[in-house]
Design a protein around this nucleic acid. Sequence first.
DNA 1: CGCTTCGTACGATAGCCATCGTAGTACGCC
DNA 2: GGCGTACTACGATGGCTATCGTACGAAGCG
Lengths: 117, 117
Amino acid sequence: MSTAPATSSRDLPHPAGADIRLEAVLHALSDPMRLQIVRELAAAEDELTCSQFALPVTKSTTTHHFRVLREAGVIRQCYRGTAKMNGLRRDDLDDLFPGLLDALLAAADRQAARLGG
Amino acid sequence: MSTAPATSSRDLPHPAGADIRLEAVLHALSDPMRLQIVRELAAAEDELTCSQFALPVTKSTTTHHFRVLREAGVIRQCYRGTAKMNGLRRDDLDDLFPGLLDALLAAADRQAARLGG
DNA sequence: CGCTTCGTACGATAGCCATCGTAGTACGCC
DNA sequence: GGCGTACTACGATGGCTATCGTACGAAGCG
Protein backbone atom coordinates (compact mmCIF):
# COMPACT_ATOMS: atom_id res chain seq x y z
CA MET A 1 0.00 0.00 0.00
CA SER A 2 2.71 2.40 0.77
CA THR A 3 4.62 4.24 -1.92
CA ALA A 4 7.85 4.00 -0.03
CA PRO A 5 10.92 3.09 -2.09
CA ALA A 6 12.38 -0.34 -1.72
CA THR A 7 15.58 0.83 -0.09
CA SER A 8 14.18 1.95 3.22
CA SER A 9 11.27 3.27 5.19
CA ARG A 10 13.07 5.41 7.75
CA ASP A 11 13.95 8.77 6.31
CA LEU A 12 16.29 11.44 7.60
CA PRO A 13 15.84 15.22 7.48
CA HIS A 14 18.31 17.05 5.26
CA PRO A 15 18.49 20.78 4.67
CA ALA A 16 17.60 21.88 1.15
CA GLY A 17 20.50 23.15 -0.91
CA ALA A 18 19.34 26.72 -0.54
CA ASP A 19 19.28 26.35 3.24
CA ILE A 20 22.90 25.36 3.60
CA ARG A 21 24.78 28.05 5.51
CA LEU A 22 28.47 28.61 5.14
CA GLU A 23 28.94 29.19 8.86
CA ALA A 24 27.30 25.87 9.64
CA VAL A 25 29.53 24.08 7.15
CA LEU A 26 32.63 25.66 8.64
CA HIS A 27 31.50 24.87 12.15
CA ALA A 28 30.85 21.27 11.17
CA LEU A 29 34.32 20.94 9.69
CA SER A 30 36.05 22.68 12.59
CA ASP A 31 35.88 19.51 14.67
CA PRO A 32 38.81 17.17 14.03
CA MET A 33 36.62 14.10 14.20
CA ARG A 34 34.20 15.41 11.63
CA LEU A 35 36.94 16.74 9.37
CA GLN A 36 38.40 13.26 9.40
CA ILE A 37 35.05 11.76 8.45
CA VAL A 38 34.72 14.12 5.52
CA ARG A 39 38.24 13.40 4.35
CA GLU A 40 37.61 9.67 4.37
CA LEU A 41 34.33 10.14 2.55
CA ALA A 42 36.02 12.25 -0.10
CA ALA A 43 38.75 9.68 -0.51
CA ALA A 44 36.25 6.84 -0.79
CA GLU A 45 34.50 8.26 -3.85
CA ASP A 46 31.61 6.11 -2.71
CA GLU A 47 29.13 5.86 0.09
CA LEU A 48 30.32 4.41 3.35
CA THR A 49 28.50 3.02 6.36
CA CYS A 50 28.93 4.66 9.75
CA SER A 51 30.65 1.58 11.11
CA GLN A 52 33.39 1.71 8.48
CA PHE A 53 34.94 4.66 10.28
CA ALA A 54 37.35 3.73 13.03
CA LEU A 55 36.85 6.76 15.24
CA PRO A 56 38.23 6.83 18.77
CA VAL A 57 34.84 7.59 20.31
CA THR A 58 31.78 5.61 21.22
CA LYS A 59 28.97 4.85 18.82
CA SER A 60 26.75 7.45 20.43
CA THR A 61 29.27 10.14 19.74
CA THR A 62 29.77 8.91 16.20
CA THR A 63 26.04 9.18 15.57
CA HIS A 64 26.15 12.71 16.94
CA HIS A 65 28.94 13.78 14.57
CA PHE A 66 27.22 12.31 11.53
CA ARG A 67 24.06 14.13 12.43
CA VAL A 68 25.90 17.44 12.75
CA LEU A 69 27.42 16.91 9.32
CA ARG A 70 24.06 16.00 7.82
CA GLU A 71 22.23 18.95 9.39
CA ALA A 72 24.92 21.30 8.14
CA GLY A 73 24.36 19.98 4.64
CA VAL A 74 27.82 18.47 4.26
CA ILE A 75 26.78 14.84 3.88
CA ARG A 76 23.75 12.93 2.73
CA GLN A 77 22.56 9.92 4.68
CA CYS A 78 20.14 7.14 3.90
CA TYR A 79 19.39 3.75 5.31
CA ARG A 80 20.06 0.58 3.40
CA GLY A 81 18.88 -2.28 5.51
CA THR A 82 20.48 -2.01 8.92
CA ALA A 83 23.35 0.02 7.55
CA LYS A 84 23.32 3.78 7.16
CA MET A 85 25.07 5.03 4.08
CA ASN A 86 26.95 8.31 4.08
CA GLY A 87 27.96 10.35 1.07
CA LEU A 88 29.34 13.83 0.51
CA ARG A 89 26.92 16.39 -0.92
CA ARG A 90 29.49 17.39 -3.47
CA ASP A 91 27.02 18.56 -6.10
CA ASP A 92 25.09 20.84 -3.75
CA LEU A 93 28.20 22.26 -2.14
CA ASP A 94 29.93 22.87 -5.46
CA ASP A 95 26.80 24.56 -6.69
CA LEU A 96 26.55 26.87 -3.68
CA PHE A 97 30.26 27.45 -3.06
CA PRO A 98 32.29 26.56 -6.14
CA GLY A 99 35.75 25.37 -5.29
CA LEU A 100 35.27 25.55 -1.55
CA LEU A 101 35.08 21.85 -0.84
CA ASP A 102 38.13 21.09 -2.95
CA ALA A 103 40.07 23.87 -1.26
CA LEU A 104 39.09 22.57 2.17
CA LEU A 105 40.03 19.01 1.32
CA ALA A 106 43.30 20.12 -0.19
CA ALA A 107 44.05 22.16 2.93
CA ALA A 108 43.26 19.19 5.15
CA ASP A 109 45.46 16.91 3.07
CA ARG A 110 48.24 19.42 3.16
CA GLN A 111 48.06 19.77 6.91
CA ALA A 112 47.94 16.00 7.37
CA ALA A 113 51.02 15.62 5.21
CA ARG A 114 52.78 18.38 7.09
CA LEU A 115 51.95 17.19 10.58
CA GLY A 116 51.46 13.49 10.18
CA GLY A 117 54.62 12.75 8.31
CA MET B 1 67.79 52.86 25.50
CA SER B 2 65.32 50.28 24.41
CA THR B 3 65.52 48.57 21.08
CA ALA B 4 61.76 48.59 20.68
CA PRO B 5 60.49 49.73 17.30
CA ALA B 6 58.94 53.15 17.00
CA THR B 7 55.45 51.89 16.33
CA SER B 8 54.69 50.40 19.74
CA SER B 9 55.93 48.74 22.85
CA ARG B 10 53.01 46.45 23.62
CA ASP B 11 53.27 43.27 21.67
CA LEU B 12 50.68 40.63 21.00
CA PRO B 13 51.21 36.87 20.79
CA HIS B 14 50.70 35.40 17.35
CA PRO B 15 51.04 31.76 16.36
CA ALA B 16 53.92 31.00 14.03
CA GLY B 17 52.92 30.07 10.50
CA ALA B 18 53.73 26.43 11.14
CA ASP B 19 51.48 26.41 14.19
CA ILE B 20 48.34 27.50 12.38
CA ARG B 21 45.78 24.69 12.47
CA LEU B 22 43.10 24.31 9.88
CA GLU B 23 40.50 23.37 12.46
CA ALA B 24 41.20 26.54 14.41
CA VAL B 25 40.88 28.64 11.27
CA LEU B 26 37.57 27.03 10.39
CA HIS B 27 36.32 27.43 13.93
CA ALA B 28 37.30 31.09 13.90
CA LEU B 29 35.43 31.67 10.66
CA SER B 30 32.36 29.72 11.71
CA ASP B 31 31.14 32.65 13.79
CA PRO B 32 29.11 35.14 11.73
CA MET B 33 30.65 38.10 13.52
CA ARG B 34 34.19 36.96 12.84
CA LEU B 35 33.43 35.98 9.27
CA GLN B 36 32.14 39.49 8.75
CA ILE B 37 35.31 40.96 10.21
CA VAL B 38 37.44 38.90 7.85
CA ARG B 39 35.35 39.85 4.86
CA GLU B 40 35.72 43.54 5.65
CA LEU B 41 39.43 43.13 6.17
CA ALA B 42 39.78 41.38 2.85
CA ALA B 43 37.79 44.10 1.12
CA ALA B 44 39.82 46.86 2.72
CA GLU B 45 43.14 45.69 1.27
CA ASP B 46 44.67 47.58 4.16
CA GLU B 47 44.91 47.45 7.91
CA LEU B 48 41.92 48.60 9.88
CA THR B 49 41.49 49.59 13.50
CA CYS B 50 39.12 47.64 15.73
CA SER B 51 36.83 50.62 16.04
CA GLN B 52 36.29 50.84 12.31
CA PHE B 53 34.05 47.80 12.46
CA ALA B 54 30.42 48.51 13.22
CA LEU B 55 29.58 45.27 14.96
CA PRO B 56 26.32 44.85 16.87
CA VAL B 57 28.10 43.82 20.06
CA THR B 58 29.89 45.59 22.86
CA LYS B 59 33.54 46.49 22.74
CA SER B 60 34.41 43.68 25.13
CA THR B 61 32.95 41.14 22.76
CA THR B 62 34.67 42.77 19.81
CA THR B 63 37.99 42.44 21.57
CA HIS B 64 37.22 38.78 22.20
CA HIS B 65 36.49 38.08 18.52
CA PHE B 66 39.65 39.80 17.35
CA ARG B 67 41.67 37.77 19.77
CA VAL B 68 40.14 34.52 18.56
CA LEU B 69 41.01 35.46 14.98
CA ARG B 70 44.53 36.38 15.96
CA GLU B 71 45.14 33.24 17.99
CA ALA B 72 43.84 31.12 15.14
CA GLY B 73 46.37 32.79 12.86
CA VAL B 74 43.81 34.45 10.62
CA ILE B 75 44.73 38.05 11.34
CA ARG B 76 47.78 39.94 12.48
CA GLN B 77 47.44 42.68 15.06
CA CYS B 78 49.73 45.41 16.21
CA TYR B 79 49.38 48.59 18.15
CA ARG B 80 49.90 51.95 16.58
CA GLY B 81 49.46 54.52 19.26
CA THR B 82 46.13 53.95 20.95
CA ALA B 83 44.76 52.24 17.90
CA LYS B 84 45.10 48.52 17.22
CA MET B 85 45.65 47.71 13.60
CA ASN B 86 44.27 44.51 12.09
CA GLY B 87 45.37 42.86 8.88
CA LEU B 88 44.75 39.51 7.24
CA ARG B 89 47.62 37.01 7.32
CA ARG B 90 47.16 36.39 3.65
CA ASP B 91 50.75 35.40 2.96
CA ASP B 92 50.93 32.83 5.74
CA LEU B 93 47.54 31.36 4.97
CA ASP B 94 48.21 31.15 1.24
CA ASP B 95 51.49 29.48 2.01
CA LEU B 96 49.93 26.88 4.29
CA PHE B 97 46.65 26.38 2.45
CA PRO B 98 46.87 27.64 -1.11
CA GLY B 99 43.56 28.85 -2.44
CA LEU B 100 41.68 28.28 0.79
CA LEU B 101 41.28 31.88 1.85
CA ASP B 102 40.12 32.95 -1.59
CA ALA B 103 37.64 30.09 -1.73
CA LEU B 104 36.30 31.00 1.70
CA LEU B 105 35.94 34.65 0.83
CA ALA B 106 34.29 33.82 -2.47
CA ALA B 107 31.89 31.50 -0.69
CA ALA B 108 31.05 34.20 1.86
CA ASP B 109 30.49 36.75 -0.90
CA ARG B 110 28.31 34.35 -2.79
CA GLN B 111 26.19 33.61 0.24
CA ALA B 112 25.87 37.30 1.08
CA ALA B 113 24.72 38.00 -2.45
CA ARG B 114 22.27 35.15 -2.34
CA LEU B 115 20.78 35.93 1.06
CA GLY B 116 21.25 39.63 1.47
CA GLY B 117 20.34 40.95 -1.91
C1' DC C 1 10.36 -16.46 16.78
C1' DG C 2 14.89 -15.56 18.87
C1' DC C 3 19.52 -13.66 18.00
C1' DT C 4 22.75 -10.48 16.17
C1' DT C 5 24.16 -6.30 14.12
C1' DC C 6 23.69 -1.50 13.34
C1' DG C 7 22.39 2.59 14.68
C1' DT C 8 19.16 5.93 17.75
C1' DA C 9 17.24 8.29 21.82
C1' DC C 10 17.72 10.12 26.14
C1' DG C 11 19.84 11.78 30.22
C1' DA C 12 23.95 13.32 32.47
C1' DT C 13 28.22 15.78 32.71
C1' DA C 14 31.87 18.64 31.97
C1' DG C 15 34.01 22.03 29.24
C1' DC C 16 33.98 25.64 26.09
C1' DC C 17 32.20 30.08 24.33
C1' DA C 18 29.60 34.42 23.05
C1' DT C 19 27.97 37.98 25.48
C1' DC C 20 27.81 41.65 28.84
C1' DG C 21 29.26 45.25 32.43
C1' DT C 22 32.57 47.44 35.04
C1' DA C 23 36.95 48.78 36.14
C1' DG C 24 41.48 49.59 34.50
C1' DT C 25 45.70 50.50 31.40
C1' DA C 26 48.25 52.56 27.58
C1' DC C 27 48.90 56.25 24.52
C1' DG C 28 48.48 60.92 22.39
C1' DC C 29 47.42 65.64 23.01
C1' DC C 30 46.81 70.08 25.19
C1' DG D 1 50.08 66.89 34.67
C1' DG D 2 45.34 66.26 33.19
C1' DC D 3 41.99 64.66 29.88
C1' DG D 4 40.02 61.84 26.31
C1' DT D 5 40.31 57.89 23.34
C1' DA D 6 41.08 53.08 22.32
C1' DC D 7 41.25 48.92 23.85
C1' DT D 8 41.85 45.21 27.76
C1' DA D 9 41.12 42.31 31.87
C1' DC D 10 38.21 40.07 34.84
C1' DG D 11 34.16 38.00 36.54
C1' DA D 12 29.54 36.41 35.62
C1' DT D 13 26.13 34.08 33.01
C1' DG D 14 23.57 31.46 29.94
C1' DG D 15 23.85 28.46 26.13
C1' DC D 16 25.89 25.24 23.28
C1' DT D 17 28.49 20.81 22.59
C1' DA D 18 31.48 16.70 22.79
C1' DT D 19 31.46 12.85 25.32
C1' DC D 20 29.67 8.85 27.63
C1' DG D 21 26.45 4.94 29.19
C1' DT D 22 22.39 2.57 28.99
C1' DA D 23 18.28 1.33 27.04
C1' DC D 24 15.81 0.91 22.86
C1' DG D 25 14.22 0.10 17.77
C1' DA D 26 14.80 -1.70 13.04
C1' DA D 27 16.43 -4.96 9.72
C1' DG D 28 18.28 -9.40 8.44
C1' DC D 29 19.27 -14.36 9.38
C1' DG D 30 18.81 -18.80 11.24
